[in-house]
């Protein structure tokens, strides 16, 4: 080639669009005078055009399947992790259910059969027989809650009586103004807890409305 290496470099810089304005002016001025360099640039452009005309090659249709078949087996732990991530609602629901069951069963099993009474008034607990006795002539103004035991009412109860895991016995002389409820099975108990829970929520909401 007749022209110097510098011009040769300029042509490639021009091809790479990596040329300064000044260099571009210099090259263009040279190309007008120099057929060899002009031809060189034309050939390079044609070369690039040919290479770029190569059609795009696509991967075979089963390519992805083949790659996936070659992967190391996903560990059981990861599969589980993936599944958990994909089903957040189920996991949340399951967690809540578990917590609910645990809390209910812990309350249900509370006290190991020990008789407990909640309420105010004159009554006594006969531990030997497992009976709460409201003696004759006594009046209990509020509600009574007896757990793991029976209740005998010989006096008067103005509120309601709830017996969990036990029975109530109303003496002919006794009197209960409110309702008497016996809860002896887990499902009854669950139902009772749920009602109590919603009653609490409702009263909470009502009080916050005020």
């Amino acid at each position: 080639m007749a022209c110097n290496k510098e011009k040769h470099q300029l042509i490639h810089k021009y091809m790479d669009e990596d040329i300064t304005l000044l260099e571009k002016k210099e090259l263009e001025a040279h190309l007008v005078k120099c057929d060899i360099c002009h031809g060189h640039l034309r050939e390079l452009r044609k070369t690039v055009a040919i290479i770029q005309s190569a059609s795009h090659i696509e991967a075979p249709a089963d390519f992805t399947a083949q790659v996936m078949a070659g992967l190391p087996k996903e560990t059981q732990k990861n599969k589980w992790k993936t599944w958990v991530r994909r089903h957040p609602l189920i996991i949340t629901a399951a967690t809540f259910f578990l917590v609910f069951i645990l809390s209910i069963s812990s309350i249900w099993n509370d006290g190991d059969g020990e008789i407990t009474v909640a309420g105010e008034g004159q009554f006594y607990v006969d531990q030997e027989r497992g009976v709460v006795v409201v003696p004759e002539g006594e009046t209990i103004s509020g509600d009574l809650l007896v757990r793991n035991g029976n209740i005998e009412v010989e006096g008067e109860v103005l509120g309601s009586i709830t017996v969990i895991n036990g029975e109530q016995y109303l003496a002919s002389a006794g009197h209960v103004a409110g309702e008497i409820e016996e809860i002896n099975r887990v499902f009854d108990w669950l139902w009772y807890r749920t009602k109590a829970f919603f009653a609490d929520v409702m009263s909470f909401m009502n009080s916050s409305d005020e």
């Binding site: 696509e58 991967a59 075979p60 996936m68 990861n78 993936t82």
Partner: peptide, 20 residues
């Protein structure tokens, strides 16, 4: 995170370029 199904999507996106 170890999700292989996500990797399949990645392969789909780049397989032609890499194969070419």
């Amino acid at each position: 995170k170890g999700n292989q199904q996500a990797f399949a999507e990645l392969v789909e996106l780049y397989k032609d370029k890499v194969f070419q």
